[in-house]
C-alpha cells in the first residue's frame, strides 16, 4: 500500500518536473519527488538512505538549484518555446526504448545468491549500524576516494564561477557594447 501511494506520487511529480513552464515550479515538484522517493526507500527498509535523501537532495541540492535560478534572471522571451526541435523524434525513440525495457523486465527472472544481511538481522542492529559496518569495513577506500571527488568538484565549482571577474576588468569596450 505504501508503495502505491508513494509510487503514484513519484510518477506524477516526475511528470510535473518535465512539463512545468516555470523553472521554480518544477524545482518544487522535484522536492516533492525526492520526498516520495524517501518514502519508497522506507518501504524497502532503507531508513538511513531515506534520511540521506531528504537531507542531501531536498535540503542541499535543491536549495542550490533554487538559489541559482533566483540569482540569474531568465528573460521572459526565452521561456516561451519549452521544447527543442527534436521533440517528436525523441518521444518516439523513448517510447520504443521504454517498451523494450518493460519487455525485457517481464522476461527476466532475477536470481542470485542471498547475502548475510537478512531483514531479521538488520532489524536487530538497525539499518544505520549495518550500513555503517559495511561502509567503513569493506568500502573504506572507496569512501575516501569519494571525499576526494567531492573536494575536487568543490574547487572546480569555485574556479568556474569566479574566473570571469578578473577578466572583465581587462575587457575591451567593444565586447561590452553588446549588453
Amino acid at each position: 500500500m505504501v508503495f502505491y501511494i508513494f509510487g503514484t506520487l513519484a510518477f506524477f511529480t516526475a511528470l510535473l518536473v518535465v512539463t512545468q513552464k516555470n523553472v521554480v515550479h518544477s524545482a518544487l515538484s522535484l522536492i516533492l519527488f525526492f520526498v516520495a522517493m524517501a518514502g519508497l526507500f522506507i518501504s524497502l527498509e532503507a531508513e538511513f538512505l531515506a534520511g540521506l535523501q531528504i537531507f542531501l537532495y531536498a535540503g542541499g541540492i535543491m536549495v542550490m538549484f533554487v538559489f541559482v535560478v533566483m540569482i540569474i534572471n531568465i528573460p521572459k522571451s526565452q521561456r516561451e518555446p519549452r521544447f527543442t526541435k527534436q521533440r517528436y523524434i525523441a518521444l518516439v525513440v523513448m517510447i520504443i526504448l521504454f517498451i523494450e525495457v518493460i519487455y525485457l523486465l517481464s522476461k527476466t527472472v532475477f536470481k542470485g545468491t542471498k547475502g548475510i544481511f537478512t531483514p531479521e538481522k538488520v532489524a536487530k542492529i538497525s539499518n544505520t549500524v549495518a550500513v555503517g559496518q559495511v561502509l567503513y569495513r569493506e568500502y573504506l577506500f572507496a569512501f575516501e576516494l569519494i571525499s576526494l571527488v567531492v573536494l575536487v568538484s568543490m574547487i572546480g565549482a569555485v574556479v568556474l564561477s569566479t574566473r570571469r571577474i578578473r577578466q572583465r576588468k581587462s575587457r575591451s569596450p567593444m565586447t561590452e557594447s553588446g549588453k
Binding site: 510518477f11 516526475a14 511528470l15 518536473v17 518535465v18 523553472v23 531568465i74 521561456r79 518555446p81 519549452r82 521544447f83 527543442t84 527534436q86 521533440r87 525523441a90 518521444l91 523513448m94 526504448l97 521504454f98 525495457v101
Partner: peptide, 12 residues
Amino acid sequence: FIGLTGMLIRRN
C-alpha cells in the same frame, strides 16, 4: 524514461 525524455526535449 521520464527523466531521459525530459532531458532530450526540454530547452531550459
